[in-house]
Amino acid sequence: MAELLKIKNLSIGIDGKEILHGLNLEINSGEIHAVMGRNGSGKSTFSNALMGHPAYKISTGEINFNGTLINNLKPNERAKLGLFLGFQYPLSIPGVTVANFLRQANKALKGDAVSPRDFRKLLYEKMDDLEIDHVFATRYINDGFSGGEKKRMEILQMAMLEPKLAILDEPDSGLDIDSLKLVAQSINKYKEKNPSVSVLLITHYQRMLDYIKPDKVHVFVDGNIVESGGPELALELEKKGYDWLTEKEAVKA
């Protein structure tokens, strides 16, 4: 399988403080990777840095996406290459409707302008998949949405914008079990339709992985991957907790 994302020795800091220390990761086309770790282990720093958040500065290392070095690319340029970030805390943009926003984003990414009618049809289809009421198309982005609605809206955006790599930052946090299933199903559905798409799923609970089967699981501790393995690693973590790895790390050091 073709290599899609290759990260070499990546160190990231914010406000002069280093959070990620020399991280390495490779993701091939079509693979699902899960990143697990405690709060504060650097997972969100990692996802923000991958998408090019200006506050996160790369001090060393390389991020290659689909053969392009993207270290210095702006977020929209990364989006154009096929990267997508589903935010842990999606922001609200009052006054801008979901439909308008997605239409403009779609145009920016794909270049061609779909007719408003076709676009609406497509949008409604995807909304139905996610059991999102059509009325949300005319609501302002995330404005007054519940936690679950915001999370589903992120997945809707992914389905509409069709990325090559979807980084989903805790798509499960704050969801009840029904919403969680729905979100997982939509991710799976998108993945089935587009088998070459890769997913980087960031979570700190195993429960999401009951529905989305990862090919690989990585564990974050203190700003680096300390352990990688198959799906069984997630189950082991569920049983033993993170301390087991922290101790292991201490022994190594």
């Binding site: 090019g52 702006k74 929209n76 920016a108």
Partner: peptide
């Protein structure tokens, strides 16, 4: 907010304009 919109493919200029338009809505 700029980052959020730009992560969806909008240029900085488009993203700013979108926020301004939303503000005037």
């Amino acid at each position: 907010k700029l980052f959020y919109l730009m992560s969806r493919g909008l240029s900085e200029e488009q993203a700013k304009l979108m926020i301004v338009n939303g503000f005037m809505e």
